[in-house]
Every structure is written in structure tokens, then in C-alpha cells.
Simulated assay, not measured.
Amino acid sequence: MRSLRNLLFIALCASSFACAAKKDYVVTIETSHGDIVALLFDDTPEHKSNFIKLAEDGRFDSTEFQRVIKDFMIQGGDVFTKEDMPAQEWPTLPAEIRPNHYHRKGVIAAARQGDGINPERRSSGSQFYIVLGKVYDELELTTDMAKLQKAFMKYMELVSEADLKKEYTRLYNEQKYDSLTSLILSKRDELENSLNLNLRKDFTAEQIATYTTVGGTPHLDKEYTVFGEVIRGIEVAEEISKLPTQRDRPIEPVFMKVTVDKKSRKKIEKEYDYSYTDVK
């Protein structure tokens, strides 16, 4: 019995040592506005290995955050334009769209061309974006606004809804668009019952909790590959997103230098107050 306990103890020690010794890549994106530190997900291996290789080879260095939109995202890493590679030769990556990774604030995702010319949703071989987004009201988040608006316009034409149409017209003419949205949303349940429609979007309880507290860009879910997350410096990304722009490009260029450093996961958890067990 004692020998069995000793074997179990040795096995547990070996397991603990293996966990402590396991390493990961810490990504640091240096900018003139500060550093953004990130980790990349293991279950998107193509994107993780590609990003690390580009960083190790220095190919991200001197690329820009060339597209920034406040309360949405910042996008950069256009390696192939910097290297004067013909657009038709730009490499892409197979989509690694995972249901457990969604567009909450702080995640990193791969840019891509639209479905019309890219039905497989293959990712850009270099360009990425950092999600900022906004915090959503649960009613707005869980409503299919396109379907609701279409149903609302039809419903508003009923003779019995003359007052509703009058209020809608007033708000529209006064350009009170937030109030207009609230008015339309207030009729969701009534329209579902009256017209026998389903006007809702499906989100998990976790997504609802996240999007209504932390925020993000839920309309991008299931469309783009999310492959990492910022663990320090999200305020730097927010600052960059607020810079003066011309056609979404910062007037003063925001260049980046990207480095990767391999550290034990135990050290990463301690240094960045991060938990690998929380990664879904």
C-alpha cells in the first residue's frame, strides 16, 4: 500500500512539474503610445504559429495600425504591402473559427476578404485586429435588428398604429436615432406575438454576460477567426482608436514592433494575473 502511495505521489509531482515547466509565447506589440501584451490560443494553431513566425522574423516591424475605429477595433500588421508583394500572391490561412472564442473586448482576430470572393472565410496571412467594441443592453444584443426593423415598418402601416407611425416620424425628423432604436426595440415582444415571428439572436449565457458588461463586437461572431487576447495594455489600443483619422487611417502613423518571448505558463499567470484554466 505504501509503495502505491509513493507511486501516486511521484506521478502527481511529475504532473505538477510538467505543468509548471510548460511554456507559452508572450507577444508584445510596441507602439509610440505604449505596449500591448497578448497571448495566442492553442486551439487556433495555424494562426498562432503563423503570427509567431512573422514576429520572430521581424516582418511585423514597421507595419502600422492602418485602420482604427473608435468603439470598434484597431487593425494592423499589413506585412505584404510593406514588402511590396503583389496582392494576388498574398498568402492566406484556413479559417479556425471556434464557438468558444467570440468577439469580446480585448481579443485578437484575423482580418480577411469578404464572403463574396472568400466563401471559405480564409484569414489574411498577416493582418489582425484588436477588438474594442461597446457594452450592449441585453434587449438590443439578443434582438435581430434587421428582422425587427422590417417587421416594425410593416406593423406601423396598420391603421390602428397611426400614433406609432407619427411618433416614429417625429423622432426620425429630429434625428433622435437612439430614441428611435429604443422605440423599435420596445415593440419586439408585441411584434413577435402579433406576427408570429422569431426576432431573437442566440447567445450563450456567458456571451450575454460578457457583452453586457465587458463589451465587444458580437456581429462579427462566427465570421472571423479569433486567435488570441490582450492580457495587458488594452488601454493603449483604446487610445490608438481615438486618434484623428482620415478615412479611418491615423493622420499620424502608428508603427509597431512585435516581439515574442517564451515563458513558463506559471510565470505568465503570476506576472500578468492570468489564468489558463479560464480560457474556454
Rank of each mutant, 00 (worst) to 15 (best):
D71S: 03
I74D: 02
Q75A: 00
Q75M: 03
Q75E: 05
Q75I: 02
G76R: 12
D78N: 11
V79Y: 04
V79N: 10
F80G: 10
F80K: 14
K82Y: 00
K82N: 09
E83I: 03
E83K: 12
M85A: 08
M85Y: 02
P86N: 08
A87C: 03
Q88K: 13
Q88G: 13
E89K: 12
W90N: 15
W90L: 05
W90K: 15
W90R: 15
P91S: 10
P91K: 10
T92K: 14
L93K: 14
L93P: 08
L93R: 11
E96W: 11
E96F: 03
I97S: 01
R98G: 01
R98N: 14
R98P: 01
R98W: 15
P99G: 09
N100R: 11
N100F: 07
H101S: 05
Y102M: 03
Y102C: 03
K105L: 02
K105D: 06
G106R: 00
G106K: 04
V107H: 08
V107R: 04
V107P: 04
I108P: 06
I108C: 08
A109T: 13
Q113W: 10
G114W: 10
G114K: 09
D115L: 05
G116S: 14
G116T: 10
I117P: 07
I117N: 13
N118F: 03
P119N: 12
P119E: 13
P119D: 14
P119C: 04
E120M: 08
E120A: 07
E120R: 15
R121A: 01
R121I: 00
R122I: 00
R122E: 14
S123M: 03
S123D: 15
S123H: 12
Q127S: 03
F128K: 09
Y129V: 01
Y129E: 02
I130D: 06
V131K: 03
L132P: 13
G133S: 04
G133A: 02
G133R: 09
K134A: 01
V135A: 01
V135Y: 05
Y136E: 11
D137R: 11
E140I: 01
L141T: 09
T142Q: 14
T142C: 09
T142I: 00
T142D: 12
T143Y: 02
T143Q: 10
D144Q: 08
A146M: 04
L148T: 07
A151G: 03
F152G: 04
M153P: 05
M153T: 15
K154C: 02
K154Y: 06
K154P: 00
M156S: 08
E157H: 06
S160P: 12
S160L: 11
S160A: 08
E161C: 01
A162K: 15
D163S: 09
L164F: 05
L164P: 06
K166Q: 12
K166I: 05
E167K: 14
E167P: 02
R170W: 15
R170A: 02
R170V: 07
Y172C: 06
N173H: 13
N173P: 05
N173W: 15
E174D: 08
E174S: 03
Q175Y: 12
K176S: 04
Y177H: 08
Y177Q: 09
D178N: 11
L180A: 02
S182K: 14
S182W: 10
S182M: 13
I184E: 07
